[in-house]
């Protein structure tokens, strides 16, 4: 095979045409699941983990990829990174077929698996970065520049000489994100980057991702269970369930389709009968605390103003709907319409 011409073809200007950095056309992934039905006997069953998914992501986009457990999110990410070979359809990342040219693609993508660290447990954090430097053959100046930037923005300066086993979960996640970015990937995949993190760590990770996307122009694709991640980061969200793409568009649209509701929790001065207010209904009362449901697409501010005008308000908080609730409402909507 003539690799030279191949390289020129894929890296040439033609591959930027149309600006679709990631492109999937009818991508499928079918697993053969073998189930034991007796001694030495088994039954074969086919499971469609990803069922004919098509979408495109432009360079510099930040996209949330959500869905319940087992929906096919991880399978999609694994196909995009070249870990798994699709059973059907066409898939391109930066003009490269991931499953065929896994190692070549590796230089251009960064991957963070939320629950599996790639850092060296017994060694100081900086040693893991030095390994990346050499394994990815990152030019020295570029490595120094990228490391400095990550250290500053992810607040890693004091952690560099600490063995990874002594880092907290939040610190380790920040460390993992830096490790995935030292080789200047054009796209960063994050699988549940905020899972298990405390509020402050979550905020730091989100702030960094926002900066990365805005300043560096890095394309970001993240899966999450936390709708707040999506709300604060992604203008575009894709919902996948049972291997099918259920929704692709802005988050606000998702709320409209799903008729999802947010919850306003108010603490009143004293126990009162359920609040009566326009466009919200009380779903629960517990002493002076009341829970009101209101459409997620609607702003909470006028609602709060109306309640504050009529009731002795002490404190309040707004709760976002969780993804499972949004998706189950989407189904209910589809069934009735």
């Amino acid at each position: 095979m003539d690799t030279q011409t191949d390289t020129q073809k894929d890296f040439g200007p033609a591959d930027d045409h149309g600006d679709d950095f990631i492109r999937l056309d009818g991508v499928e992934k079918v697993f053969d699941v073998r189930k034991k039905t007796g001694f030495m006997r088994s039954e074969r069953r086919q499971v469609r983990a990803v069922d004919s998914i098509s979408f495109a992501v432009a360079r510099g986009e930040m996209v949330g990829y959500i869905g319940p457990n087992g929906a096919g999110k991880s399978t999609t990410i694994k196909m995009l990174t070249g870990i798994l070979t699709p059973s059907g359809g066409r898939l391109r990342v930066a003009g490269i077929d991931p499953s065929r040219e896994r190692t070549r693609l590796a230089h251009r993508i960064g991957v963070v698996f939320g629950q599996r660290t790639t850092l060296w447990w017994d060694l100081p954090l900086i040693d893991s970065y030095r390994l990346m430097h050499r394994m990815y053959r990152i030019p020295d100046a570029r490595y120094a520049e990228n490391l400095d930037r990550c250290v500053e923005l992810l607040e890693l300066a004091e952690l560099l000489d600490v063995p990874v086993r002594q880092l907290s979960l939040g610190q380790r996640m920040r460390g993992d994100i830096a490790a995935a970015l030292l080789h200047d990937p054009e796209v960063l995949y994050l699988d549940e980057p905020t899972i298990g993190l405390d509020v402050i760590s979550k905020a730091k990770v989100r702030e960094f991702l926002r900066h990365l996307n805005a300043e560096q122009g890095t394309t970001v694709l993240l899966t999450t269970h936390d709708l707040t991640d999506i709300e604060q980061l992604c203008r575009r969200v894709m919902v996948i369930d049972h291997g099918r793409l259920m929704y692709d568009g802005p988050l606000t649209g998702l709320h409209e389709i799903g008729e999802s509701e947010r919850t306003l929790v108010v603490d009143l001065e004293r126990e009162l009968p359920p609040i009566e207010v326009e466009s919200a209904r009380v779903v629960k009362v517990e002493g002076p605390r009341q829970w009101l449901a209101f459409p997620a697409a609607q702003s909470a501010a006028p609602l709060v103003a109306r309640i504050a005008a009529a009731y002795p308000l002490v404190d309040l908080s707004v709760r976002e709907p969780d993804i499972e609730a949004v998706i189950s409402r989407m189904y209910a909507e589809k069934a009735t319409s």
Partner: peptide, 12 residues
């Protein structure tokens, strides 16, 4: 599942 972390590296 840690084999996956090796498969995203640019090495055999």
């Amino acid at each position: 599942g840690t084999l996956d972390t090796l498969l995203v590296r640019p090495a055999p």
